[in-house]
């Protein structure tokens, strides 16, 4: 005769998974039959508990403590937002190209050009500027002024 069935084998039989040999042993062995009856009783007890008794009350979730962290969290969030804005502005300023500043000499040259253009006698700023710089031109200008004043031909 085969050895007695293990608990797992008995459980298999109760789950309709038992082999022919296991069922045959169960039918022939008084000890295994008694164990199988006890197991059946246990399973019936389990079923009765689940069917007939109320499920034990699950413990309710504990009442939440007041959220003392909330003001601190709001403050921190606001500070973080301000910091973010400040960093954004600072970085924006750092990376934005500033128009190149002009040197005083360049400014003077431009103003000189403008002045020459506005007050040129010949209408040509380049020739006016050149005339101002050349002594011959100055003499010619002087003669022209004289003739204008005296009425004589130059």
């Amino acid at each position: 005769m085969s050895p007695c069935l293990s608990d797992d084998a008995l459980t298999r039989v109760h789950a309709d998974l038992g082999s022919i040999a296991e069922r045959a042993h169960l039918a022939a062995c008084a000890a295994c039959t008694a164990r199988s009856r006890r197991m059946r009783g246990d399973l019936d007890l389990i079923a009765a508990v689940l069917r007939d008794t109320p499920e034990p009350v699950t413990r309710s979730a504990p009442v939440r403590a007041p959220r003392r962290w909330l003001p601190a969290a709001v403050g921190l969030s606001a500070a973080a937002a301000v910091l973010l804005v400040w960093v954004e502005v600072a970085v924006w300023r750092a990376v934005t190209p500033v128009p190149p500043s002009m040197q005083p000499q360049e400014v003077a040259a431009i103003l000189s050009d403008v002045s020459a253009s506005l007050f040129s006698l010949s209408g040509d700023p380049g020739s006016a500027s050149a005339a101002e710089e050349s002594p011959q031109s100055l003499e010619a200008m002087a003669r022209e002024v004289d003739s204008t004043l005296t009425g004589a031909e130059p």
Partner: peptide
């Protein structure tokens, strides 16, 4: 079904 039942029976009996 039988395999699920076997596992369930084993677990519940263990608890008992």
């Amino acid at each position: 079904v039988k395999r699920h039942l076997f596992r369930a029976l084993r677990h519940l009996r263990g608890a008992l």
